[in-house]
Amino acid sequence: MTLFYAFLLLYCTSLTTYAQKLPDLQTNSVSAPATTRIDGKNLEWNTFSAENKRTGLLYTIANDDKNLYLALKATSSEVINKIFAGGISFSINAKGKKREEDASTITYPLVVRNNANRGAGGQGGTSRQRMGQGRADQSQEQKDSTAFEQRKAQLAAIKEIKVKGFNITDSLISIYNEYGIKAVAKMDEQKAYFCEIAIPLAALEVAVNDKKEIAYQIKLNGRQGGNFTQRINSGVGGFGGGNNRGGFGGGNNNAAQQDLMVATDFWGKYIIQK
Rank of each mutant, 00 (worst) to 15 (best):
A19T: 01
K186N: 15
F90M: 02
R151C: 06
K41L: 13
S234I: 00
R135P: 02
G132S: 15
G124Q: 03
Q273P: 03
I197N: 01
W267Q: 02
L201F: 10
Q26D: 03
P23S: 06
A202V: 01
G226L: 02
G246N: 09
V262A: 04
D65S: 14
A256L: 07
I173P: 09
N233R: 06
R37N: 14
V184H: 12
I218P: 03
D137S: 14
S77N: 15
E141I: 08
Q150C: 02
E78L: 15
E78A: 15
A153T: 10
Y5G: 00
G238W: 11
K159I: 00
Q133I: 05
D265K: 12
N93W: 10
R37K: 15
G165L: 01
I168S: 02
M261G: 01
N114D: 15
Y18N: 08
Q154K: 09
R130K: 08
L8G: 04
Y5T: 05
V111F: 12
L22N: 03
A256V: 00
V112M: 11
A32N: 10
F239W: 14
S104A: 03
N63S: 12
D64T: 01
I218Y: 12
P33K: 09
Q224G: 00
T2H: 14
K162E: 09
I38D: 11
A19C: 07
N67T: 04
P23R: 07
R113L: 03
E141F: 12
I181H: 07
L70Q: 02
G87L: 09
G56Y: 12
G86H: 06
L10R: 03
N243P: 02
L220D: 03
A74S: 14
K219S: 11
L204I: 00
D265H: 13
I199V: 08
